[in-house]
Design a protein around this nucleic acid. Structure first.
Length: 939
RNA sequence: GGGCGGUUAGCUCAGCUGGCUAGAGCAUCCCGUUUACACCGGGAAGGCCAUAGGUUCGAAUCCUAUACCGCCCACCA
C-alpha cells in the first residue's frame, strides 16, 4: 500500500465530482447486490441469501413532469445520508428511486406547457393519443431528473428506477382497488365536490386556492309560511257547482272567516288578493297559485299539505266536521254556513311584496350567491340567537321558487355576520353541506337521548327533540350542473342557462318581487382552481369513496402502540407531528378517489352501456345507464350494469369508467408496489425509513400506512423523517416575485455539491424550515477546502510511516504515551460517539454542526497544531538553526493517531459530503475494514 | 376562532430530565502568519436567555398568563 499525496492547491470540486460519481455508478456500488469484497454484483438470489442485515428506503417519487426542485433534492440528501451511514455499518442497503405521474397537476402542466404552446386543445385529442403524448413528455423529463438525482449524490439503485404508471405498478394498484371493492371498502356515493368547470374535473381541496375579490352581498326576504293558512276558503254550494260547470260567469269570491258575509272578489290563478290576518290584524298581499275544487270536503283534509298550514300539529282537524266545530268557536253561525258548502282550496303564493311585510313575517338572509337559492333546503340561524328564537322550526318560502323550507339551527352560523340568518344550499356550498350533515346527524340521534345537546365553543345548543322531530332531516337540491347551467327545480325562464348570464335577470326579478331589500359590496374569498384559475363550483356528484372508518384505528395504533423496545412500532420525527397526525386521522372523512382526468390509473370499473349523470326536475343526481338504447337508473350492485375487475368484460358494448384514481391512491401503495415489482418484499418489507416533506404527512404518509394495513397487514416503514422547507436566500419562502430563488445548477457549479448538501443538513432539525443562503454556501465551500488541506497535511507527513504502523483501528488509549496524542485520540473517540448518536437519533443538523466545529476548530486548529512539533523539524527563519526536532518514537505515535483521526473523520463526514471525502479517501492508506471506496468502508 | 412550534449575541443555531461566570459558527474589530490551508491562525467585543408573575436554596430550563413570529386546520354566507 502506497500513500498518495494530494495535489497542491485548493479543493476543486469540478475536477473530482464527476469522476467520483462515474465510478460509483459504473461499478453499480449503489445496488444491494454489490459485493464490496469482490467489487462484483451478485445475483438477486445471492443477495437475498447474503447474511448482511437488510435496510431499505423507498424514495418519495417527485413529479415526473419536471426536474426535482430544491426541496426534492434536500430530501434526497437526507435519504442518501441515512443510506450511506447504514451501508457503512455493513447493511445491504436498498434505495429505490422513482417518479410520480402527479395526476391532476401533471395533466395541468402538460396541457399548459406542451399542448397550449402547440395550440392544441385537450378535447381535440383522443384519450389514448393524449395519454401517449403525455407519457412521452414525461419519459423525456424523467431522464433529465434522473441526472439531477445522481448528481446530488443520491446513492439509490438507479437500475430499479420506477415510474408510477409502469405497467407492473398499475396492475398492483388496480388489484388493490378490486380487492377493496370486493371487501366493501370502496363504494360509489354522491357527495359534494369541487368542480373545475374549465378542466371539467373534480379538484381536491388542496388543489384550490383562495382569491380575495370584491363581491356583492344581497339581503333577501324569505316570507314565513304561516300566511298560507289563508289558502283555504269555503264557498256556497252554488259557486262550487258553477266552477264544476266550467262556467265563466260565476262569481267566485273569497270569504273572510272573520267576516263570513263579505266577499272580496273573483278569484282565479294569478290573481292578487288582499286578505286579512286575524292574528296580526293586518292585511296581506297574496297571489293565487291555483284553484282546486273538492267534491267531497273530507278528501281535502286527507291532503298532506293541508296539515302543514297549521303551526301546531294538534290543531289540525281530522275531518270536515271537526273543522266546522273549530270555526263555530270563532264566530256565531259561521260553522253553520260552512256545513252547507263544499270546499275549495286556493293555494296562495307568498305575499306579493315581501318588502312590505312586518318584522315577524319574514326572515332576512344575506347571500353572495342568490342564484343558488333555488337549491335552498333550509335557513339556518345560530341556536343562541335571541332574535330568531321563536322562528326555529317554522317555514319560509323561497322567493321566485315558491318552495317551503324550514328554519333550522347551526352553531356554524355567525350571529354577527349579515343578518345572522343563512340560507342553506347543501348542494352548492361546502359549509352548507356540512351544516346539513350535522343537522341530519342530530335528527338521527334523537331516539338515543331525549334532548340533543351539542356543545361548541363553550356555548350550549339545546333544541328539544320534539322540535327536531317536527323539522326533520333536510336534503339537498342540485340546481347547477357540470355545465354551470341551471337545472332542476328552477323557474322555467332560467332553466338551461349559464347561471352567471341569468344572474342579472334573477336579481331584477327578486327586486321586483320585493324580496331583494339591500345590496352591499364586500371583500370575499372565492375558491379558484390552482391550475386553470377557473372559479370552483361546489356541486354534488357521484364519486368513488374509500370507507376510512375501519382504517382509522389500526393506522393510529401503528404510531400509538408501543412495541417491546419501548418505542412506537412506527416513529414520526419530529415527535410533535404525532399530534397533528392523530387529529387528522381521527377526523378523517371518507376519501373521494375518483378524478375526471385522462392522466392516471383509469378505474377498473366497467359499465354495460353509456353512463350519464343527470339532474332531474327534483334536483336529484341520477346515474343512468343506456342499455339496449334505453336509459335506466344505474344499479351498481347489478353485475349486468356494472363490474369491478381488471380486464374488460367480453361483450364489446361494455366500456370503462372515465375517471382515473386520485394520485394518492397509487402513491399510497408505493412502498410495497415498488418492492413487489422487483420481487424484494420478502427481504426488504417493511422498509426502514420514509423520508419526506412534513407537509405531506397527512396526504401521503398516512395513506401509505392505510394501504400497508389493508394489503400487508403490517407497517410500511419503521421511521418517518419529515424534513422542513428550504427557504430562499433571504430566509423567506422561495418565490419568483421575491427574487430569492436559488438556481441549483449555478450553486452547485460555484460551490460544489458537498457545500449544497451541507446547507441542507447543517443546524437543521426535522420539521423545521431553513434558508439556503450564500453565506452558508461560501462557508461550506471553505469547509470542504479545509478538509482537503488538513488531509493533505496529514497525508504528506505520513509518507515515512512503516507499513505495519498503518493499521490504526485497534489503537487503544493505553498504547499512547504522549499527552497531546492521547488528547487527539480521545477527541476522535468522543466525537465519533456523538456523531453516531446524532445520526441514530435522526439529528442530522447536530451531527453536521458537530462535525464542522470539531473537524475545523478542534482537530485542525488545536490538535494538529499541537502535534506539529512531534512530526517535523522547526527551524529559525533567519538563522536556519534547528529549534525542535521530532523523536522517531514520538513521531510514529503521532502519525498513527493522525492517520486514525483522518480516517475516522472522513468516514464520519462521508454520509453528508460524499464527494470530497471519497476523493481524499483514494489517497489514504487502507487496512482491514477499509475498501477502495468509502461507500462500504466500515463506520 | 382551534391546534402545534418558536422567541437565547447583528445573523444561523446549541444548551438533554432545573446546578460552575449562558455556548458555537458566521459577520464585526484588532493582531498575526507564508515548511496544509488567506477558502489561514490567534484574540477581542457582543446577551436583563420576549414580557410579567409563580414554584425552588437555585430558573434560559418547570408552571401560569401576555405579546410577537411561523406553520397547520377551520373559515363570515
Amino acid at each position: 500500500m502506497k500513500t498518495n499525496r494530494l495535489p497542491d492547491g485548493p479543493y476543486n470540486h469540478k475536477e473530482h465530482e464527476e469522476k467520483i460519481l462515474k465510478n460509483w455508478l459504473d461499478k453499480k456500488m449503489y445496488k444491494p447486490e454489490f459485493n464490496p469484497e469482490t467489487s462484483e454484483v451478485m445475483s438477486l438470489e445471492e443477495m437475498k441469501k447474503d447474511s448482511r442485515t437488510p435496510w431499505s428506503l423507498i424514495c418519495p417519487p417527485p413529479n415526473a413532469y419536471g426536474r426535482p426542485h430544491i426541496g426534492n433534492l434536500s430530501g434526497y440528501a437526507y435519504q442518501d445520508a441515512m443510506a450511506r451511514y447504514q451501508r457503512m455499518n455493513g447493511k445491504k442497503v436498498l434505495m429505490i428511486p422513482g417518479k410520480d405521474h402527479a395526476g391532476l397537476e401533471g395533466e395541468g402542466v402538460f396541457v399548459r406547457e406542451v399542448l397550449e404552446k402547440k395550440k392544441i386543445r385537450k378535447f381535440d385529442l383522443e384519450r389514448e393519443e393524449f395519454y401517449n403524448m403525455m407519457m412521452e413528455f414525461n419519459q423525456e423529463n424523467m431522464k433529465k431528473a434522473l441526472k439531477d438525482e445522481q448528481e446530488i449524490g443520491l446513492s439509490a439503485d438507479f437500475d430499479r428506477n420506477l415510474f408510477t404508471l409502469d405497467e407492473r405498478v398499475v396492475d398492483i394498484v388496480l388489484s388493490t382497488f378490486v380487492k377493496m371493492f370486493d371487501d366493501g371498502m370502496i363504494y360509489k356515493g354522491v357527495r359534494i365536490i369541487n368542480w373545475d368547470p374549465k378542466a371539467r374535473s373534480t379538484l381536491a381541496d388542496n388543489q384550490c386556492e383562495r382569491l380575495e375579490r370584491e363581491g356583492t352581498i344581497y339581503n333577501l326576504r324569505y316570507p314565513l309560511v304561516k300566511h298560507r293558512l289563508w289558502k283555504i276558503n269555503f264557498y256556497h254550494e252554488k259557486i262550487l257547482n258553477s266552477i264544476r260547470d266550467g262556467s265563466k260567469t260565476v262569481e267566485s269570491r273569497v270569504l273572510n272567516p272573520d267576516e263570513p258575509d263579505r266577499f272580496f272578489g273573483d278569484i282565479k290563478a294569478g290573481d292578487d288578493l288582499i286578505c286579512f290576518d286575524k292574528n296580526k290584524g293586518n292585511h296581506l298581499h297574496m297571489k293565487v297559485k291555483a284553484v282546486r275544487v273538492y267534491e267531497d270536503s273530507n278528501e281535502f283534509f286527507k291532503r298532506e299539505d293541508f296539515s302543514k298550514i297549521y303551526t301546531n300539529k294538534n290543531d289540525v282537524p281530522n275531518s270536515y266536521d271537526e273543522m266546522i266545530e273549530q270555526y263555530e268557536k270563532l264566530a256565531d253561525g259561521y260553522g253553520e254556513k260552512l256545513k252547507k258548502n263544499g270546499a275549495i282550496a286556493i293555494e296562495l303564493e307568498f305575499p306579493v311584496k315581501p318588502s312590505e311585510l312586518q318584522n315577524s313575517e319574514f326572515i332576512e338572509v344575506a347571500t353572495t350567491r342568490p342564484e343558488t337559492m333555488f337549491g335552498d333546503t333550509a335557513v339556518a340561524v345560530n341556536p343562541s340567537d335571541e332574535r330568531y328564537k321563536d322562528l326555529i322550526g317554522k317555514k319560509v318560502i323561497i322567493p321566485l321558487a315558491n318552495r317551503e323550507i324550514p328554519i333550522i339551527t347551526s352553531h356554524r352560523v355567525e350571529k354577527d355576520f349579515g343578518t345572522g340568518a343563512l340560507k342553506i344550499t347543501p348542494a352548492h356550498a361546502l359549509d352548507d353541506y356540512q351544516i346539513m350533515l350535522e343537522w341530519n346527524e342530530q335528527i338521527n340521534n334523537i331516539p338515543s337521548s331525549r334532548r340533543v345537546d351539542s356543545t361548541e365553543g363553550g356555548r350550549r345548543e339545546v333544541l328539544s327533540s320534539s322540535v327536531l322531530e317536527k323539522i326533520g332531516k333536510i336534503g339537498y337540491i342540485n340546481v347547477i350542473g357540470q355545465d354551470i347551467q341551471l337545472h332542476g327545480p328552477v323557474p322555467e325562464k332560467y332553466k338551461g342557462q349559464v347561471y352567471m348570464k341569468v344572474m342579472p335577470e334573477i336579481i331584477k326579478d327578486l327586486e321586483e318581487s320585493g324580496a331583494l331589500v339591500k345590496t352591499e359590496k364586500l371583500m370575499q374569498n372565492i375558491l379558484i382552481s390552482e391550475r386553470t384559475k377557473a372559479i370552483v363550483e361546489p356541486m354534488m356528484s357521484s364519486q368513488w369513496f374509500v370507507d376510512v372508518e375501519r382504517l382509522k384505528e389500526p393506522v393510529i395504533d401503528m404510531v400509538r402502540n408501543v412495541s417491546e423496545d419501548g418505542h412506537p412500532r412506527l416513529r414520526i420525527h419530529p415527535e410533535n407531528m404525532e399530534k397533528a397526525f392523530y387529529s387528522w386521522m381521527e377526523n378523517l372523512r371518507d376519501w373521494a378517489i375518483s378524478r375526471s382526468l385522462w392522466w392516471g390509473y383509469r378505474m377498473p370499473v366497467w359499465y354495460a352501456g353509456e353512463v350519464e349523470e343527470r339532474i332531474n326536475d327534483e334536483g336529484e343526481i341520477q346515474s343512468v345507464i343506456n342499455i339496449d338504447g334505453e336509459w335506466i337508473t344505474l344499479d351498481p350492485t347489478n353485475k349486468d350494469h356494472m363490474r369491478v375487475q381488471l380486464e374488460k368484460p367480453e361483450a364489446s358494448s361494455w366500456h370503462q369508467d372515465d375517471n382515473v384514481l386520485d394520485t394518492w391512491f397509487s402513491s399510497g401503495q408505493w412502498p410495497f408496489a415498488t418492492l413487489t415489482v422487483f420481487g424484494l418484499m420478502d427481504t426488504f418489507y417493511p422498509t426502514d425509513v420514509m423520508e419526506t416533506g412534513f407537509d405531506i404527512l397527512e396526504n401521503w404518509v398516512s395513506r401509505m400506512m392505510m394501504f400497508s394495513h389493508i394489503t400487508q397487514d403490517d407497517i410500511p416503514f419503521k421511521d418517518v423523517y419529515l424534513h422542513g422547507l428550504v427557504k430562499g436566500t433571504d430566509g423567506q419562502k422561495m418565490s419568483k416575485s421575491k427574487g430569492n430563488l436559488v438556481n441549483i445548477d449555478e450553486v452547485r457549479e460555484q460551490y460544489g455539491t458537498d457545500a449544497v448538501r451541507m446547507v441542507y443538513f447543517y443546524q437543521n432539525s426535522a420539521g423545521s424550515d431553513y434558508a439556503m443562503t450564500f453565506d452558508k454556501l461560501k462557508n461550506f465551500k471553505q469547509f470542504n477546502n479545509k478538509i482537503w488541506n488538513a488531509s493533505k497535511f496529514v497525508l504528506m507527513n505520513l509518507e515515512d510511516m512503516k507499513e505495519e504502523d498503518k493499521s490504526v483501528y485497534d489503537l487503544k488509549e493505553s498504547d499512547l504515551k504522549i499527552d497531546e496524542v492521547k488528547a487527539l485520540y480521545n477527541h476522535v473517540i468522543e466525537t465519533k460517539e456523538h456523531i453516531t448518536k446524532n445520526i441514530e437519533d435522526f439529528e442530522f443538523g447536530l451531527a453536521t454542526s458537530n462535525l464542522y466545529q470539531n473537524f475545523w476548530h478542534e482537530f485542525a486548529d488545536i490538535h494538529v497544531e499541537a502535534l506539529k512539533p512531534l512530526i517535523y523539524t522547526f527551524k529559525d527563519k533567519e538563522t536556519g538553526e534547528t529549534i525542535s526536532e521530532p523523536k522517531a518514537e514520538e513521531k510514529a505515535e503521532a502519525q498513527k493517531v493522525l492517520l486514525f483521526a483522518l480516517k475516522t473523520y472522513l468516514k464520519m463526514l462521508h454520509p453528508f459530503i460524499p464527494f470530497v471525502t471519497e476523493t481524499i479517501w483514494s489517497a489514504v492508506p487502507k487496512e482491514s475494514g477499509d475498501y477502495e471506496s468509502l461507500l462500504y468502508t466500515k463506520w
